[in-house]
Design a protein around this nucleic acid. Sequence first.
DNA 1: TTTTTGCCTCTGG
DNA 2: CCAGAGGCAAAA
Length: 315
Amino acid sequence: MHRAGAPGLSRSGKPPESVISLNWSDIPQNRLNIPLTLTSGQCFRWEQTPEGEWYGAVGNSLVRLKPEEAGFWWETYPEPGRWDLIHRYFALDVDLEGLYAQWRRREPRIAPSLRRWAGLRILRQEAQEAFFAFHCATCNTVVKITRSVRALAQRYGEPICDLNGKTFYRFPDVKRLSDASERALREDLWGFRAPRVIASARHLRMQEPGWLESLRERPYREAHAELMRLEGIGAKVADCICLFALWHDEATPIDTHLWKIAVELYRPDLRGRSLTPALYQSAADLFRDRFGAYAGWAQQYLFLDALNAGRTYTT
DNA sequence: TTTTTGCCTCTGG
DNA sequence: CCAGAGGCAAAA
């Protein structure tokens, strides 16, 4: 497992004027590609400035990042120097190179994707934000999910702090969402997903506090089954929540793209078949057999191939 | 078990 | 203008 040396606080050389107050981490882009990771469709609230800086809410903090090839500048607000936040959010304890080697042994055909998307990571996101954001993913586009999630945060979220004349918001808590109006959510483009968000918020509110986070400690299969009991959460959204909100790295969401890839790579006999619950299960198990405990991470590389054919991302 | 259909709304053919 | 978008659930 990789460890960031002195916890990201070391300074290298002379920082440019604009980043004079930022901290430096020497984790290079091929072990953490920030722009790629933040635009890979797993999170929806980061904003990039024309200067190439990234601003995003992580829990009740605002994180500011300026990536470079050899590492990245960073700061947190309002409490500065929270390297622990960044280390966890980007799952920097996970050894990417080791995963690549393991995956290539098991499935050599993944090699081009690993080159194309080198440094892509699965984020350790706040449970509730990812839980609700992926309610929005059913039959939707990343562009529209982004608009919907941001609108929701501005409408019902508590402000974190102001920076450069802009206010950044927390993701709304369950109480606010359970009292939200369906009409407001529909104005924010949630469409037929709006009542599902409110229903899920009410469900969470009826559980013990911390119930959602407690699913992180349960085995993946149990967490997945628990989520599927909620109205409006099927196998695919449950897997997105398991992977992105609950940090179950073996969860492999099978969307329409991954289904085609599974058919192409392993089951040409199923070409043209629709994705039934039984076939969903077998496809997901297939990827888990192939890629192991971090199959969800491998899935994200294959997903990006389909989502963004032709795009490569170095800085 | 599987396929079909409706559901919000935007975008690319 | 239509089909499809990181689906889901109800119905047959």
